[in-house]
Amino acid sequence: MSFVETTEQKELRAAVAKLAQRYNYLDYALPKARAGEPLTELWHEAGELGFLGVNLPEEHGGGGAGIYELALVQEELAAQGAGLLLVVVSPAICGTIIAKYGTREQQTRWLPRLSDGSAKMAFAITEPDAGSNSHQITTTARRDGTEWLLNGQKVFISGVDQADAVLVVARTEDASTGKLKPALFIVPTDAANFTAQRMEMDIVEPDHQFTLFLDEVRLPAEALVGEEDAAIAQLFSGLNPERILGAAMAVGMGRYALDRAVEYAGTRQVWKTPIGAHQGIAHPLAQLKVELELAKLMMQKAAALYDSGDDANAAEAANMAKYAAAEASIGALDRAIQTHGGSGLSSDHGLGAMLGAARIARIAPVSREMVLNFVAQHSLGLPKSY
């Protein structure tokens, strides 16, 4: 990989940043979040400009680029405080999986609309009793003639109220062994016996979380994505982009926080000089700049490895990027608040609200503890601890 972005990538960054400046945090994204409303106008314009589908195949209306470019889009949006959570889900996870494994009919039906943002797809894997152990999910799919019946429950599923369908991770029974194995299904949000219940969260965010109940949800045969036996590979083809896009959003929020802190420290004067002239203020901000750049480099490495087809090394880098970006982002928000003093917790700046949103990155899409488990086992070769 090159550490120098191409002219096209630089131009994409500039174009996304220009859009995000018009839909910035204080004027647009934060008021929307406080009202509990999605960033619909930003989503639609980003779709019209081709930003949302930049990673999807050209033959289906996408940009024909990669996860690197989609992460770039997310980072620049978040750097203005206007990151789009469903970019992580709709084009990155669902779009990638359908582009790689979906039937021709699924690709023709969904990818053009995921590319231009006219359709959204949510992703449902987490369950109340499984948590990080996705091998223990109990949502099941059984055949009924040529159709499927899904039963189960999912939690912390983002943006279902905005979505046209949900890509649900279920399990089917292997007829030869009797064991359950994962499979993926496209479930329309208006399907009979499919219920979405909004979860109350203490976070100021424009996107809501939902608990899903599937009670004998009947689906046609063509709802199954790809082959039943390919579900593990399908899952990982979507989960690595999820980590990379999550890292991109965290890096962007960290950049936003650091910019606000530097701006304030450079102008706020209490004694004879701006407070940024004091090492007690300047050094922590300089340290955060280093940490954000390091996290960004790992994110770019993970994206480059994924786009090259090196899935094994991409998994390691994606987990490390998610970990590093979360820590740097939370650190940047906390330091930005401290730099502002009491003003840092005022509604005028919105930094306290963003700190709550940034805190999500330590938990989702995978907790920092599970990332450390992964690194200990797969990178260091230590015995599995769980």
Rank of each mutant, 00 (worst) to 15 (best):
123 F>C: 03
153 Q>H: 13
85 L>D: 05
172 T>H: 13
190 D>F: 04
214 L>R: 00
328 A>I: 06
164 D>N: 13
183 A>F: 04
27 D>F: 01
319 N>A: 12
1 M>R: 11
232 I>G: 09
172 T>D: 08
272 K>S: 15
170 A>P: 04
369 E>K: 11
325 A>Y: 08
16 V>N: 05
19 L>F: 05
230 A>G: 12
155 V>R: 12
286 A>S: 13
147 E>F: 05
21 Q>E: 15
126 T>V: 09
238 G>D: 10
218 R>G: 01
376 A>K: 12
340 H>D: 04
349 H>N: 14
172 T>K: 07
258 L>C: 09
64 G>A: 06
105 E>V: 03
20 A>N: 11
148 W>M: 04
146 T>S: 15
299 M>K: 05
102 G>R: 01
299 M>N: 09
221 A>D: 15
43 W>Y: 13
150 L>I: 09
214 L>H: 02
344 G>C: 05
143 R>S: 14
85 L>N: 07
134 S>L: 14
300 Q>Y: 12
151 N>A: 08
159 G>N: 08
20 A>G: 08
288 L>A: 06
379 S>C: 11
222 E>H: 09
46 A>W: 02
321 A>C: 07
183 A>T: 03
143 R>T: 10
64 G>T: 03
66 G>R: 03
318 A>T: 01
271 W>H: 12
343 S>H: 11
197 Q>H: 13
290 V>K: 09
312 A>D: 15
219 L>K: 03
86 L>D: 09
193 N>V: 02
53 G>P: 03
274 P>L: 07
178 G>E: 10
104 R>I: 07
320 M>N: 06
302 A>K: 02
261 A>V: 02
241 P>D: 06
378 H>F: 12
220 P>R: 09
201 M>S: 13
351 L>A: 08
144 D>P: 02
38 P>C: 04
264 Y>A: 05
139 T>P: 03
26 L>F: 04
154 K>Y: 12
278 H>R: 07
256 Y>N: 01
297 L>T: 10
87 V>S: 02
378 H>P: 00
309 G>K: 06
172 T>P: 02
